[in-house]
């Protein structure tokens, strides 16, 4: 089972729930997310669906802690610490592994317009693997990397249903001879039901490119793949500081990657 897009999704998770809004000077935002993903089929190199044989599957439980702190009105620092437990059955061989995954540390600079309803943020982050080796299951590439993201979030004044639009594009590079180089994007629209309930619709995707085009030798570590993902998130503000999000996602289109669906539960604390 190929599952790399899951890791990328996790790293994007916070972006979905907090969009490109700055955290705010002196404020800390803490987010704890649980992600479950199940896949029992693949997209092949031509984007065709390949059903798995003999009941093969790949399951993943992902727990991620995300912290962002507002240094100033425009500058935030952030870090993500994910832990993953994977279980896979491939050709009747059952494998599992639990480990910390790729840690992400970076900063974000936001430019706002005069009406404070259009936010353009530039994010730069480093990626550090917190695991060694690829056995019994690979967590990710095991390499350091860098991520550069541009996010544009707008809350137009004249909207039939209030909320925001979000456009995000990221370029990510892993420092290995084979890369990969990845382009990630996310197009989102949030709908405010009332002051404290939101629905967020997202279309996101990843295109990963590498000179290593292998698909057979070690499918888990595929570096050349792409996919499109649809997400639907419901958010509810529970208290002055806590907001909960429940998200479902599905992969309708892909190439050389896993095909599956999953759900995410995110809690976001705005402190103080």
């Amino acid at each position: 089972m190929k599952k790399l897009f899951l890791i990328l999704s996790i790293l994007l998770l916070f972006h979905t729930t907090y969009a490109g809004f700055p955290v705010g000077k002196g404020r800390t935002v803490l987010s704890l997310a649980y992600n479950f993903y199940h896949s029992n089929s693949n997209f092949d190199i031509d984007g065709h669906i390949q059903k798995s044989k003999h009941g093969d599957y790949f399951d993943s439980h992902y727990l991620s802690l995300y912290v962002a702190h507002g240094i100033s009105r425009k500058l935030d620092i952030f870090a993500a610490l994910p832990y993953v437990y994977e279980a896979s059955r491939n050709d009747s061989i059952y494998l599992s592994r639990g480990s910390f995954a790729d840690c992400l540390i970076g900063f974000s600079l936001t430019k706002m317009n005069k009406s404070f309803n259009k936010f353009t943020s530039f994010k730069l982050a480093g990626i550090w693997p917190l695991y060694h080796g690829v056995k019994p299951l690979a967590i990710s590439y095991g390499a350091t990397g860098v991520d550069f993201t541009i996010n544009y979030t707008s809350t137009p004044k004249k909207m039939k249903i209030k909320g925001y639009y979000m456009l995000e594009g990221s370029y990510r590079h892993y420092f290995t001879p084979e890369g990969p180089d990845q382009f990630l994007f996310d197009i989102g629209r949030s709908f405010t039901i009332n002051h404290f309930n939101y629905i967020i619709c997202d279309l996101s995707g990843t295109i990963s490119s590498s000179i290593n085009k292998s698909t057979i030798v070690n499918p888990v570590l595929s570096k050349d793949f792409s996919y499109l993902e649809t997400k639907l998130t419901f958010g509810r503000r529970m208290s002055r500081t806590l907001t909960l999000y429940l998200e479902g996602f599905y992969t309708p289109i892909g190439r050389n990657t896993g095909r599956g669906l999953g759900g995410v539960f995110v809690s976001v604390w705005k402190l103080p």
């Binding site: 541009i150 995707g205 295109i207 490119s209 792409s226 050389n256």
Partner: peptide
């Protein structure tokens, strides 16, 4: 562009598109 790149897996095209769109955005601002 995104759909084509997604299926062809051509990253250079994607990166070019990304840069192009970024520049377009900055210019529009």
């Amino acid at each position: 562009i995104i759909y084509q790149c997604l299926l062809s897996g051509s990253l250079s095209k994607v990166v070019r598109s990304f840069i192009f769109l970024s520049i377009l955005f900055c210019l529009s601002t």
